[in-house]
Write a protein that binds this DNA or RNA. Structure first.
Lengths: 235, 235
DNA sequence: GCTCGTAGTTTTGTATACAATGTGTACGCA
DNA sequence: TGCGTACACATTGTATACAAAACTACGAGC
């Protein structure tokens, strides 16, 4: 069991809280309060913030402290525009270049994902999903595209959390479908079938996008209030 | 005139030296010597290193200091594989989304590039070229692809420096051609002709790749040493 | 003779005190 | 009353001293 230093715990926990939108996009981060919250002095805490800034999780403002990386409308637009390109290319490279130990990591991430869904734990599920796709990024052995992927995954995970609502039956079906796609991707990556993985990845993206869109643009409220009244007891 | 703090100067200068391969890939960076070299204490210097690490210019090794980001064979292979994809997509977005002030920045970078070539200053030329493509990255308004682009440009600039040899006449022709392509790209971006910019960018990439390849795989030495002797005075 | 262990040195990591910068508020003046 | 300035407070940035970890070299044991 690797014993984590206070600094490592701080880094992981802040990362976790940002991805879970426990710390909201744009939120100011106070050095002193975070420092004694994690039981370290400001010096190493500032290094943690610099590191998080390097990964794109926070942004530093000179003489004005750090804040959680914001997510405005423009960001989201760009996200939807860019994700399929990067995901597809990463997936293709992953199929070609994956090592067997990375394949084990991927299967472990998928196990965690399944466990999360079974436990109805949206946070754990989202985090495992993040890990799953991050491992595919590692498989691609491409530092350039991985830099883009890492930033995409940050916003992808945060968007999922933002729009998540306690599992409706329809939602649950989609999650199961996503899990099946994960399994298919694992098989294809293991068999190194690059074209197939690319295709599966794009299907997976479409599912994810539909799921996000469903919350951004929900079904409109019924215009006819009277008829709604009649249906009240039909639920 | 913006007065630079010692810290900003340190950041810029280290960046500069890394891009110019004055600091070679993989070189160890000693905190204390760098600290008094730039006249600041270790605390802010470490922050500078963290920032450079975030940009991908250096890599940090826990309890074992920092070193300049290495460039091994695998990196170069990946670079050539990935560059056209990112450059082309960035260029297309830049044409669509550029602002007029960014267009001014781009023209300024091209002026600097031209000045560098005229002065036969390979360092200044490479840096201006870096800036030129970085501005196109800014125009794309896409933080995800920009992250990939930034890392590509680091290695692109370093490769150019590594393989640069004092301008042969043939080499000079290629630089002029590159400059012309820059001008064409500026016009196309100004006119927001996305398809044209994408095409020009890929042509520009081909030129750059040919130039790099020329040095990686130069013409073989003449096998027939005797006949070479006869030609000695013909040069 | 080689390996392992250990002491000393060098280098990195952390805490704290202090300086500088930014921010808010209250007061004076028009 | 409105605006500007100045002062006080809060927060960030820097330096230095100290602690911990890694590297080196030397010596003992097998």
């Amino acid at each position: 069991m690797p014993k984590l230093s206070a600094k490592e715990h701080c880094l992981n926990d802040l990362r976790h809280r940002i991805l879970m939108v426990d710390l909201e996009p744009g939120a100011d981060l106070d050095e002193v309060s975070l420092a004694d919250q994690y039981g370290l002095s400001r010096t190493p805490l500032r290094e943690v913030l610099q590191r998080l800034a390097g990964k794109g999780l926070v942004v530093l403002q000179a003489n004005r402290g750090a804040k959680v990386a914001p997510m405005d409308l423009a960001t989201m637009r760009t996200f939807f525009q860019t994700a399929p390109l990067v995901y597809a290319n990463i997936a293709r490279l992953a199929a070609e270049l994956r090592t067997s130990s990375q394949l084990d990591d991927l299967k472990a991430a998928q196990s965690a994902f399944l466990a999360g869904t079974r436990a109805r734990d949206p946070g754990a599920t989202a985090l495992a999903n993040h890990r799953f796709h991050a491992v595919i990024g590692e498989m691609a052995h491409n530092p350039y595209l991985s830099a883009a992927l890492a930033r995409l995954l940050i916003d992808h995970t945060r968007l999922s959390q933002t729009f998540y609502r306690p599992a409706s039956p329809a939602e649950q079906v989609l999650v199961v479908k996503a899990s099946d796609q994960h399994d298919a991707m694992i098989s294809a990556i293991e068999a190194q079938e690059a074209a197939l993985v690319t295709d599966l990845t794009l299907q997976h993206w479409d599912l994810s996008r539909d799921r996000l869109e469903r919350f951004v643009r929900p079904d409109p409220l019924p215009v006819d209030v009277i008829s709604l009244k009649d249906k009240r007891h039909a639920v």
